[in-house]
Design a protein around this nucleic acid. Structure first.
Length: 574
DNA sequence: TGCGGCTATTG
DNA sequence: CACAATAGCCGCAG
């Protein structure tokens, strides 16, 4: 049994550790205090000797540990568990505490702000007491960060220990305890990974990046005036097609629509995919689409983006979240998840290093086979291209089968795939019923839980079926819920894989690090000589992750596959 | 100044 | 533009 240790720390002050051995009264446990100079050494030694499960409040503690070069293997991230249990993205200590104590988050006390007419009569608060009279965590106490003391840090650790024991009980109450506990561990590991991704950053070659950007918008402007002049010049190349007295703002979609009408083109909106077919109708359209591309680079992925997010060490850094949003996928800022493919040649491994890139093949339909327990669909996953056997069963082309399967998971009701949907229902009735059940439940406003136990909240009443707008909202909820069960389980599986890779990389080469997670893709930065071993590892560790993830609940055998390559730059992958 | 609409990019 | 995300700019309400 891995020993749980609650930990809280503050840079420059020290760390408090509270052993959690007895579920009786954790706040009575004797805490261990470590002064700042000894923090890295002592915690590193405990990690090596005992490998405990560290229990912590989210975000600051894992980041503080990475900053002192401690990367614990096992954790129980109270924020990750809270998000799993109650859904949504909140992970503040106040919200975690409230849920652990059966309190309504809405009744939480507001922090006392600047004195005004109404707060003048408020009762004085004791800033040394963490518990408010309402039972919630005291906002004044939480806000007392300016006065960080060993006593206060120790109290944080004790409160974390208390929440851990409550969360353990809540986790046991959610579905299959082994599955949910396994998810808690991998979700917590993902939070550690997020802290590490923020710390390590993604290698980027600045010279290559600048050259690529220059290809779209020209060389770096000397000053603001020059930048403005270049922007006017770019605008002019599009507006030249419009009479001078009728030129409008290219950044205003309504104006663009009006100018399109001026050149004889009538559209309901001006999105690129719609204008693409009209490229040949008038040169204005072609120049407009080129302008849009350049404008996007200029505003979102231009020189300012490099200046703001690339460090002096040539690493691109953004904020990472282990489970934001609806179904619990990882998210990242500053374009780490939506960088245009055109800029990817700038993501280059450092000298003496390679990227080992692996992406899961057809992850969502494979996950659907697993979570639904559909034996026929699981049989199809034995093929490295599972759409081929599905197409054979349906008697349609592979592309039709693929669109139909994706359509079923997204809730599509029209188009090419809709006809093949009936074939899916007769050949894979278990999987289709699983999706239909999720959709029906969500339409009615009922919350769902993913296989790993994540609550997917609908936040809507079931009385919406009276009018057209209400039916439309209900249908949207149905599509959302149907997809969340698959996308969410896929996210949980991906994080299981990432957690295994994170745990297994150091023995192969402790300089090999995960530098990017992209929903179904992992990028590891490794010394050249470790590249092949890491590549073999990624596949082995995928099988290990599949074994763990599938093993936690009964179901047919499902095969997972990955495409793995050892490359110098991100864009080199197929 | 905050928010919804529109747009672009990715999985 | 099915499901999800981040992020920029614009117009408009307050």
């Amino acid at each position: 049994m891995t020993r749980p240790l609650a930990i809280a720390m503050a840079e420059g002050v020290g760390a408090a550790i509270v052993p959690i051995d007895d579920p009786g009264s954790p706040t009575d446990f004797s805490p261990i205090w470590i002064d700042w100079p000894e923090v890295a050494g002592t915690i590193g030694r405990i990690e090596r000797d005992d490998s405990p499960r560290w229990v912590w409040w989210p975000e600051s503690t894992p980041r503080a540990l990475v900053a002192v070069d401690v990367r614990p293997a096992r954790s129980w991230d109270l924020g990750a568990v809270h998000r799993l249990l109650v859904g949504g993205w909140r992970n503040s200590p106040a919200a975690i505490w409230a849920n652990c104590h059966g309190l309504d988050g809405a009744s939480a006390p507001e922090p006392a702000g600047a004195p005004d007419l109404f707060s003048a009569a408020a009762e004085p608060v004791d800033e040394d007491d963490p518990i408010h009279a309402s039972g919630h965590l005291s906002p004044e106490w939480l806000a007392g960060g300016w006065h960080v003391t060993p006593g206060r840090i120790t109290r944080h650790a004790q409160l974390a220990a208390e929440c851990f024991l409550r969360q353990q009980e809540l986790v046991r109450a959610v579905g299959d305890a082994a599955t949910v506990t396994a998810t808690v561990y991998s979700e917590s590991a993902a939070e550690s990974l997020c802290a590490e991704l923020e710390h390590d950053g993604l290698p980027i070659d600045l010279a290559v990046a600048e050259a690529l950007i220059a290809g779209f918008i020209g060389p770096r402007p000397a000053d603001a005036a020059h930048a403005h002049a270049l922007a006017v010049e770019r605008d002019e190349r599009v507006l030249r097609h419009i009479p001078v007295d009728q030129r409008l703002d290219l950044r205003n979609p309504a104006n663009v629509k009006a100018m399109l009408r001026r050149v004889g083109i009538e559209v309901s909106d001006t999105r690129a995919w719609r204008l693409e077919e009209l490229r040949g109708d008038h040169p204005f359209v072609d120049d407009l689409l080129t302008w849009r591309k350049a404008e996007r680079i200029s505003t979102t992925f231009g020189y300012a983006w490099l200046d703001a997010n690339v460090g002096g060490d040539g690493r691109l850094r953004g904020r990472w979240s282990g489970s934001d949003g609806a179904a619990g996928r990882m998210t990242a800022t500053v374009g780490l998840h939506n960088m245009p493919a055109d800029l990817r040649p700038a993501i280059v491994a450092e000298p003496g290093h390679v990227f080992v890139r692996a992406d899961l093949g057809q992850i969502e339909p494979r996950i659907l086979a697993a979570v639904s327990g559909d034996v026929a669909l699981a049989a199809a996953t034995q093929d490295s291209d599972m759409y081929a056997p599905v197409a054979a069963r349906l008697g349609v082309d592979r592309d039709i089968a693929k669109v139909a399967v994706l359509g079923a998971m997204y809730g599509q009701t029209t188009g090419r795939g809709a006809e093949a949907l009936r074939g899916l229902e007769t050949n894979f009735p278990v999987a289709m019923a699983y999706l239909a059940d999720a959709a029906r439940s969500a339409e009615g406003g009922n919350d769902l839980r993913t296989r790993g136990g994540r609550l997917v909240r609908m936040g809507a009443s079931s009385i919406d079926a009276s009018d057209a707008e209400g039916r439309s909202r209900a249908a949207a909820r149905g599509r959302y819920g149907r997809n969340a069960m698959v996308q969410g389980a896929a996210a949980e599986f991906f994080k299981t894989w990432a957690a295994v890779v994170r745990a297994r990389l150091p023995p192969v080469d402790d300089r090999a690090r995960i530098v990017l997670c992209l929903h179904d893709e992992l990028v590891v930065h490794a010394p050249i000589e470790a590249g092949d071993a890491v590549a073999r590892g990624l596949d082995d560790w995928l099988q290990e992750a599949a074994h763990r993830w599938l093993g936690a609940a009964a179901g047919p055998r499902v095969r997972f596959v990955a495409d793995i390559s050892v490359i110098a730059r991100w864009s080199d992958a197929k």
